[in-house]
Design a protein around this nucleic acid. Structure first.
Length: 470
DNA sequence: CGTCCACGTCTAC
DNA sequence: TAGACCTGGACGG
């Protein structure tokens, strides 16, 4: 869900579903969440929401006890409020539904007291989302590109002397101190509208706007030009809001998403180019990348990122293999053998730093041994498989409340994997596809089920392959 | 089965 | 400037 427009749509959603509803009781946090508890003892309260850039603020407001009107507190007593600031990470969203149970990945839950009982859940399957209780908008984030446009523009314009603006425009756009609300798809769309190459310096894009802002009165500069870059940082996200759907949410197939998909001109489009920026985030663009584009070139021979990574992996695998062999060599076997092996490792590691000599290898193996022992010790200290009761489950998200350890131990995915292995259970297949590879569990053909997003992905991958072959 | 990729921050060499 | 933090879908072998 999560760039400026999605956060705003989310806040609207909350206001819509919580209108005229009374909440009460404990605010329940999931056991896996590392975010703070919300202590709030008002027996009755309402919920409203607002957004600013990539944050949503929920405001809880205490309500008088309507059932016990006679016992009402002093009339001049003001209702208490509590603000909670949410960041959505990569997958956060709010959901509102009947309180039969909690949906998967619901991490903070507010319950209504009126019938039918409902829940407002902060749902976030990747758990990159955060919340701060009793907080205000983060100070290190700038004005909202959507709803504080004049301040946003001013903030950027007054900061052009900062070194940051020497960086490529596409990277600066993700800096939330200045572009609060812009994310990966918006940066692509905005740059594309003006055909600005992503890797020109931010200053070169923004400096001309200083004159423009000051100009105002004189020079009838023929006003046919469209909106400038900073205006687009406001208008493009506003367009998303005005689409009326839920914004970017490829898993939410159906009309609202296809409207968004149709709206996208650049991001993830098969006819567009893409590359990783200096922070390894994919930037989609057309035309030239610009002078500051990252160069993949190293010394001498050129290697593609993928190939390089693949080779590194192979090296690592090789090292691992050799080290395993080493492990089986008894302690007092002659040094010569080990030196030969260390040379082998060195050649496997190629460009990697220093020659790992024998002592280092010994140290490594000791470390590994210690880790191994530690792991065993940990398990004996209450992290044992039996404590988790995960035996019948195959993934973290399949765990039921009763399966969580009560001692506050965090259940991690890798932990589950380890335990499953110990218990001798297999992971469930990641895909439920039949022998023909056509159907999933629901009897939907894979082809029909394919989202637009997927198709594009496939197409662009094909395109990439084709162009690589040239 | 393993690898890559995803709407975003953060901190630690 | 890596990596860590996470889950899960697509895809390749």
């Amino acid at each position: 869900m999560p760039e400026g427009p999605e956060l705003h749509l989310s806040s609207r959603f909350v206001n819509f579903v919580c209108k005229n509803r009374i909440f009460g009781g404990k605010i329940i946090k999931s056991l896996v969440s590392r975010q703070p508890d919300v202590e709030w003892d008002a027996p009755y309260y309402t919920i409203s929401a607002a957004s600013r850039g990539k944050e949503v603020k929920l405001t809880l407001t205490s309500q008088p006890d309507s059932k016990n009107d006679l016992l009402k507190t002093a009339p001049n007593e003001k209702p208490r409020t509590l603000d909670i600031i949410f960041q959505f990470g990569m997958s956060g969203k709010f959901d509102f539904y009947e309180a039969g149970g909690l949906v998967k990945h619901a991490h903070l839950n507010f319950f209504t007291v009126d019938e039918p009982k409902m829940v407002l859940s902060f749902v976030d399957f990747r758990r990159f989302g955060k919340w701060h209780v009793g907080a205000d908008w983060s100070e290190d984030r700038g004005p909202c590109v959507l709803f504080e446009y004049p301040k946003f523009r001013e903030n950027v314009m007054n900061s052009l002397d900062k070194l940051l603006f020497n960086r490529p425009i596409c990277e600066v756009m993700l800096n939330q101190q200045y572009f609060n609300g812009i994310g990966n798809y918006l940066r692509a769309e905005i740059l594309y509208r003006l055909k600005i190459p992503p890797f020109v310096s931010a200053r070169s894009v923004l400096e001309p706007l200083v004159a423009k802002t000051a100009d105002d009165t004189d020079q009838p500069k023929i006003k046919i030009e469209g909106p400038d870059f900073l205006q687009l940082c406001n208008l493009v996200p506003l367009e998303v809001i005005n689409l009326g759907g839920t914004g970017y949410d490829p898993k939410e197939r159906g009309e609202s998403y296809s409207a968004f998909d149709k709206w996208l001109q650049c991001y993830y489009q098969p006819n567009m180019k893409n590359m990783a920026d200096h922070n390894k985030r994919t930037i989609w663009y057309s035309g030239p990348a610009g002078p500051m584009a990252p160069t993949v070139k190293v010394t001498g021979k050129k290697q593609s990122r993928k190939k390089k990574k693949k080779m590194e992996m192979e090296d690592q695998a090789e090292i691992k293999k050799i080290k395993l062999e080493e492990k089986s060599i008894s302690e007092n076997e002659n040094l010569k053998e080990m030196i030969v092996r260390s040379k082998k490792i060195n050649s496997a590691a190629k460009d990697n730093v220093g020659v790992p000599h024998v002592e280092e290898m010994k140290k490594e193996s000791r470390k590994r041994k210690m880790k191994l022992e530690k792991g065993i010790v940990e398990e004996k200290n209450g992290n044992a498989a039996s404590d988790f009761k995960v035996c019948k489950h195959t993934s973290l998200t399949d765990l039921k409340l009763s399966d969580y350890p009560t001692d506050g131990t965090r259940v991690t995915r890798s932990r589950v994997k380890v335990i499953l292995k110990e218990v001798g259970l297999k992971q469930k297949p990641s895909r439920s596809v039949n022998k023909n590879g056509l159907q999933n569990k629901d009897g939907v053909t894979a082809e029909n089920k394919e989202t637009n997003h997927t198709k594009i992905k496939k197409r662009s991958a094909r395109g990439k392959r084709a162009s690589q072959q040239k």
